[in-house]
Amino acid sequence: MGKSSKDKRDIYYRRAKEEGWRARSAFKLLQLNEEFQIFKGVKRVVDLCAAPGSWSQVLSRELFQNQKQEDAKIVAVDLQPMTPIDGVTCIQADITHPKTLHKILDTFGGEPADFVCSDGAPDVTGLHDLDEYIQAQLILSALQLTTCILKPGGTFVAKIFRGRDIDLLYSQLSYLFERVVCAKPRSSRGTSLEAFIVCLGYKPSKNWEPKLELNKSTEEFFEGAGIGKSDNLEHLDFPVDEGRTIGTFLATGDLNDVDSDATYRPGKERELVPVQMPTAPPYKKALEMKRRGDLVRR
């Protein structure tokens, strides 16, 4: 899923170096914020799967330097060790383990978080279904924590790979958030299936209380959460009626922004001017409505 071979010649890679980000991923979060203003009103953040830490850097710079919130709190978690970042509490742990989630909750001391993000990606095996399953487990683990710690109205962002069951996940998340969008920042390569699921306006399930128990799997955790997961254990029937929804897709970041798929030749830019001025793209209206959050759900 992730490819690194092109990194060296990638312009975002160079820009990250110049601007002091630990990874080019920083631009993905920045471009998501440009579109969704996810940093607005945010004080307490959990950054899951955070190493080497460029998202934490972005968050630290935003909350402490730009917004001057001295009491802001950022907790970063990863399997890998992380070089310390100002104002960021680092935890080295596996996010799929309930113990880790307990530890994060403890760090927040009962206070809710305003924003939970996860940029996690497992080492891929090459067996697509297994890789997709493990990726889904990472997202569900992040969502588990989210349901336990995110304040109502808060935001959840997670990396996804747009594989065969992405419509299932989209459907499940739509039960818990006001708005769910599948966003692809311009800095994420077009050749990769990577995208980000941006979930805005957390609305906790009314009839279900999330309870983290050490001996529950993610699947058991979400039992009764009413997010459309099929309950098929009675006769172990193959679920045919699972909720699937095609997500709304948004390419974020300016189109004139650097294209991560292109090979750059500095100084050789040229703009070919069209004879005829273009009309608005067909999706424009729907998109604008969506940006305003006007689109009503069926």
């Binding site: 692809k184 311009r186 077009g190 897709f249 948004l250 390419a251 189109l255 798929d261 070919l272 001017v273 069209p274 004879v275 005829q276 273009p278 009309t279 608005a280 793209p281 067909p282 999706y283 998109l287």
Partner: peptide
């Protein structure tokens, strides 16, 4: 060289695959 393009129209949000 090419002349001016006679059509330039955005159709998709990003890559036309």
């Amino acid at each position: 060289s090419l002349d001016e393009m006679i059509i330039k129209q955005q159709l998709h949000q990003n890559g036309i695959k």
